[in-house]
Design a protein around this nucleic acid. Sequence first.
DNA 1: CTTTCATATTGACACTGTCTATATTGACTT
DNA 2: AAGTCAATATAGACAGTGTCAATATGAAAG
Lengths: 209, 209
Amino acid sequence: MAKSKSFHHGDLKRALMRSALEILDKEDVAGVTIRAVAKRAGVSHAAPANHFPDRRALLTALAAEQFAVVFDKIRAGIDAKTSDTRADLDPLDRIAVLFDSFLTYGLEYPYRYQLLWRYDLVDHEVEIVKQPADRVYDFLVGEIEKVVDRNTVDPDTVSVTIWSMMHGYLDLRMTGMFEDRRDRISGAPRAQAMLMIVRDYLHDLGSRV
Amino acid sequence: MAKSKSFHHGDLKRALMRSALEILDKEDVAGVTIRAVAKRAGVSHAAPANHFPDRRALLTALAAEQFAVVFDKIRAGIDAKTSDTRADLDPLDRIAVLFDSFLTYGLEYPYRYQLLWRYDLVDHEVEIVKQPADRVYDFLVGEIEKVVDRNTVDPDTVSVTIWSMMHGYLDLRMTGMFEDRRDRISGAPRAQAMLMIVRDYLHDLGSRV
DNA sequence: CTTTCATATTGACACTGTCTATATTGACTT
DNA sequence: AAGTCAATATAGACAGTGTCAATATGAAAG
């Protein structure tokens, strides 16, 4: 085997990513310093350099992994609901699962979620990030295209709009923008209400065909 | 006079904020370091401490100012359109102006816009930030309440949804999420198309009353 | 057993924010 | 007009950061 326990430390790369994630579960990405991660993994401050050329590379790898996690969450959610109802879900229900998976993830792991979109810390051009991120987005576009009539409205615009709404809500929540009176119904219930708006909108579009 | 030219430097506080903004127009907020701002203003690296206890305070003051700028933009936009048509705008048009002002600002000054929502760098609890930010948001809520029927849908949720969409689009654009095929119609035209969706949605809501 | 080379360590450098002690200087008091 | 005071600016230091270079370690290959 090539990846188990062999060298000085034994798969330090994985250990570093795990340490980084553990920090990210407690604090802001600012706390994920090379030195802190190294210390937590029990190695010297320069050891990570052998596996990640710089901090950006470490955080990029972490984000890539998490994008994949989100995609798996969506897939699992759809599978679960499908086997429940013993029938294929219609596009609106599948979009609802996407929406729900995303919001659940974001509300449960705010710092992980934030990392995903820190373009100053994560390289979104690199393939290991692009691919899993695309898979999620493409899924949304695919479902929207099934629902929407091209002659009535541009499916791309609808996709961008829904994705924006989803992300915007999570991002703004973390700034505290929606706290206090603004979010009397906060967190998941609010998200459900937002989903209803999307549902209504899409349903209306469908019936206009 | 108390604020013109008097002390060692002469209203260094203003000069520092101007320097910071100039940097922010060229690069990420990461480039807005205390030392860089000080150098640009022609003072020593510790001089800013007399006016801002720490970097957070400087960035908070900057964000506060910019929130006010955005609000003024909206107000000016509405005034302009009102004097054009020589009649009061209906709520949908006023929301359109809000939408447009925000997106124009965000697309023109991406780094300024991003600073507004960096809760790790800006104190959103402090009054100088809260007040101008609230004024913008309250404006949106006020107009939505005029359009929406409380029995059909919760106006708060609609406000949160629209605000989220607006912010989410700008934020995601900067990560590159909507580049390439995803945003063939990019920037302002895409924003216009999104606004259309909002318009349609709100209009339908209105006609259901 | 020796060589080899990926991996890990130590130490250094430039940069950051922030603290302390010191110097400057405009404005007010007498 | 002279002298005091308080606000403002400076210089230097410190701990922390990412990253680079030189060195050490040790598992696997010959």
